[in-house]
Simulated assay, not measured.
Amino acid sequence: MEDNVDVIMENVTTLLSFRDKHATRLGGILGGLTASVYGLWAVFVFPGFCKVPWRLRVPFLPSSKAQVQNVMKLLEDRKGRLVDLGSGDGRLADLSGFSNVTVFLAPGLVTRILEKKLKDELPDDARIIVCRFPFTHWPATCSEGSGLDQVWAYDIQTIKKQLPKSK
């Protein structure tokens, strides 16, 4: 004998109600997790992309404490103004008034154009500290640390002596 439609629907509804409780919890957990990840991304990563030209958009790579300490060691006892390249929106101003420069740029952004600008505009007593990605065309004066925390120092006076005049 076959069950009528009411009995079948009652059994289906009972089965679905047990499954829905677990599905609802799982859906709530996944939805909350998704919202949390998006929230963190929106707060910490997205603002860095807002004003940067599309061709220069790179991921946020924070400096470690060890890397900052290495930079400070290489800047010890130095006087003069400091500019940090890699913390802005990609625009470069005149660098002639700075004696100390820190550079934390992705390898694709450290170009010969930037090297030429630094060499041509910085005074002879200037020092450039490069984090994580060294200038490949310049000989480093000294370095501090190792691995991802390594930083390199380039003294402009040494660079100008060792490399030919910029074109």
Results as ranks from 00 to 15, higher is better:
residue 108 G to A: 08
residue 151 V to H: 04
residue 28 G to P: 00
residue 125 D to W: 07
residue 149 D to G: 00
residue 67 Q to A: 06
residue 8 I to A: 15
residue 138 W to A: 04
residue 129 I to T: 03
residue 28 G to H: 08
residue 144 E to M: 13
residue 41 W to V: 09
residue 74 L to I: 05
residue 25 R to Y: 12
residue 165 K to H: 08
residue 158 T to A: 15
residue 64 S to A: 05
residue 64 S to Q: 01
residue 58 V to N: 12
residue 158 T to G: 09
residue 113 I to E: 15
residue 19 R to G: 14
residue 46 F to G: 09
residue 22 H to T: 09
residue 53 P to I: 06
residue 119 K to F: 08
residue 138 W to D: 04
residue 146 S to Y: 15
residue 19 R to C: 12
residue 46 F to N: 10
residue 37 V to H: 12
residue 89 D to F: 11
residue 84 D to E: 13
residue 48 G to H: 05
residue 121 E to R: 01
residue 163 L to F: 11
residue 160 K to H: 07
residue 20 D to G: 14
residue 145 G to Q: 08
residue 5 V to P: 07
residue 57 R to H: 12
residue 40 L to V: 09
residue 22 H to M: 09
residue 124 D to M: 08
residue 87 S to N: 06
residue 1 M to S: 12
residue 148 L to G: 15
residue 24 T to G: 13
residue 43 V to N: 15
residue 43 V to F: 12
residue 122 L to T: 00
residue 119 K to G: 03
residue 34 T to W: 12
residue 74 L to V: 07
residue 146 S to A: 12
residue 104 F to R: 06
residue 20 D to E: 15
residue 95 L to A: 03
residue 49 F to C: 14
residue 37 V to M: 09
residue 91 R to P: 04
residue 34 T to S: 14
residue 29 I to A: 08
residue 109 L to E: 03
residue 82 L to A: 07
residue 77 D to L: 12
residue 107 P to K: 02
residue 129 I to M: 03
residue 123 P to R: 04
residue 111 T to S: 03
residue 127 R to I: 08
residue 115 E to R: 03
residue 106 A to M: 09
residue 149 D to C: 03
residue 130 V to K: 00
residue 22 H to G: 11
residue 12 V to C: 10
residue 122 L to I: 01
residue 89 D to A: 13
residue 56 L to T: 00
residue 147 G to I: 03
residue 51 K to N: 15
residue 45 V to I: 09
residue 65 K to W: 11
residue 5 V to A: 11
residue 69 Q to A: 10
residue 91 R to G: 01
residue 125 D to K: 04
residue 156 I to W: 05
residue 108 G to D: 07
residue 61 L to Q: 09
residue 110 V to Y: 04
residue 129 I to G: 01
residue 90 G to K: 02
residue 93 A to V: 08
residue 130 V to W: 00
residue 112 R to V: 07
residue 92 L to N: 05
residue 19 R to W: 12
residue 71 V to D: 03
residue 13 T to F: 13
residue 84 D to S: 14
residue 117 K to S: 05
residue 22 H to S: 10
residue 133 F to Q: 01
residue 106 A to S: 13
residue 137 H to W: 08
residue 18 F to G: 15
residue 160 K to P: 00
residue 35 A to V: 13
residue 120 D to Y: 08
residue 80 G to L: 05
residue 55 R to K: 13
residue 102 T to G: 05
residue 41 W to Q: 06
residue 28 G to T: 08
residue 43 V to K: 11
residue 36 S to I: 10
